[in-house]
Simulated assay, not measured.
Amino acid sequence: MNIVIIDTGCANLYSLKYAVQRLGYQPIITREINLILNADKLFLPGVGTPKTAMEQLYLSNLIKIIKSFKNPILGICLGMQLLCSYSQECRNIKMLDIIHSLVSKFKVNHLSIPHTGWNNIIIDNDNQPLFNNISNRSKFYFVHSYAVEINKYTLATSYYGVHFSAVIKKNNFFGVQFHPEKSGISGAQLLKNFLEI
């Protein structure tokens, strides 16, 4: 199976690669269009700002390729947010607009931002293969200041002063706000589930 991690220039590329390798697969990190087009599974990781990430995708001529990709693709953290329309972090930057939703800054005056650490997810639709062998309210590791608003594509939510989308899905596009590569057994199971879809 051809597994590709899109090289978005972010810091968590190799931790994701090693997490996938521990499951017995051999992913590659690349921006090469031909390799991405031939991927059976595609990861879109991200750390940083939407502006920087979208610039990287634009310079690599990957925006149209990602939007038209037909096999399963998993956006992680900022990568999940990029699947949406706009972010309050960079209002003038149009993102991939695959999922018509806004990414909003946390409004939680009594809590520290970013939301960092372990938090549980509430699964709204446990018939999804992405959640095979994952219990409701399982804990995953989050690091983010912005979150995708709950919308019709939300599969699971989490709570940090407000409820927000923890997992989204539209057709072959999946997104998780947390970092499965840093989320222990549950994170490994989610990655395994995605790779077996």
Results as ranks from 00 to 15, higher is better:
Ile197Lys: 11
His110Met: 04
Thr30Pro: 07
Ile121Gln: 05
Lys152Asn: 15
Asp97Cys: 03
Ser138Arg: 12
Ile5Phe: 00
Tyr58Thr: 14
Phe174Ile: 01
Asn2Asp: 14
Phe131Ile: 06
Ala166Met: 07
Arg137Trp: 07
Leu42Pro: 03
Met1Pro: 11
Ile6Cys: 09
Pro72Trp: 11
Met1His: 12
Ala19Lys: 05
His179Asn: 04
Ile36Glu: 08
Met95Gly: 06
Val47Ser: 07
Leu191Asp: 03
Ser112Glu: 12
Ala19Ser: 09
Ile122Glu: 14
Val4Ile: 15
Ile168Asp: 01
Ser186Lys: 13
Glu89Ile: 00
Lys67Ser: 05
Asn172Glu: 11
Met80Gly: 02
Gly161Pro: 04
Pro27Ala: 00
Leu23Ala: 03
Ile28Val: 15
Asn71Thr: 00
Gly79Met: 00
Cys84Leu: 02
Phe174Pro: 00
Tyr153Lys: 09
Thr157Cys: 07
Ile5Glu: 05
Ile66Met: 01
Gln26Phe: 12
Leu190Phe: 04
Leu23Pro: 11
Arg31Ile: 08
Met1Ser: 12
Leu74Glu: 04
Phe174Ala: 00
Ile93His: 05
Gln21Trp: 02
Lys67Arg: 15
Ile29Ala: 02
Leu13Lys: 07
Leu35Tyr: 09
Ile168Phe: 03
Asn127Ile: 13
Ser165Asp: 09
Val103His: 11
Ala156Leu: 07
Cys90Phe: 13
Ser183Asp: 04
Asn136His: 08
Ala53Cys: 10
Pro72Met: 06
Leu83Asn: 02
Tyr146Ser: 02
Leu13Val: 03
Gln26Trp: 09
Leu37Met: 14
Met95Gln: 07
Trp118Glu: 10
Arg137Thr: 12
Ile113Pro: 05
Ile28Ser: 10
Ile63Lys: 06
Asn61Leu: 12
Gly9Trp: 08
Leu102Trp: 14
Ser186Ile: 12
Pro27Val: 01
Gly184Leu: 09
Phe173Met: 05
Leu62Pro: 04
Phe131Asn: 10
Ile6Pro: 10
Thr49Asn: 06
Pro72Arg: 08
Pro114Gly: 05
Phe106Gly: 08
Ile185Asn: 15
Gly161Met: 04
Phe142Ala: 08
Ile6Arg: 09
Cys77His: 06
His115Leu: 13
Ile65Pro: 00
Ser68Gly: 03
Val103Asp: 09
Leu96Phe: 04
Ile168Gly: 04
Ile99Gln: 05
Asn151Phe: 12
Asp126Arg: 13
Trp118Ala: 08
Tyr14Pro: 10
Lys41His: 11
Thr154Trp: 09
Lys94Trp: 00
Leu78Glu: 00
Ala166Arg: 03
Arg137Lys: 15
Val176Gly: 02
His163Ala: 13
Thr8Ile: 00
Lys94Tyr: 01
Leu155Ser: 06
Ala147Phe: 15
Gly24Arg: 08
Lys169Ala: 11
Cys84Asn: 03
Gln81Asn: 04
Cys77Asn: 03
Gln88His: 11
Tyr160Cys: 05
Cys90Ala: 11
Leu130Pro: 06
Ser183Asn: 09
Leu37Ala: 13
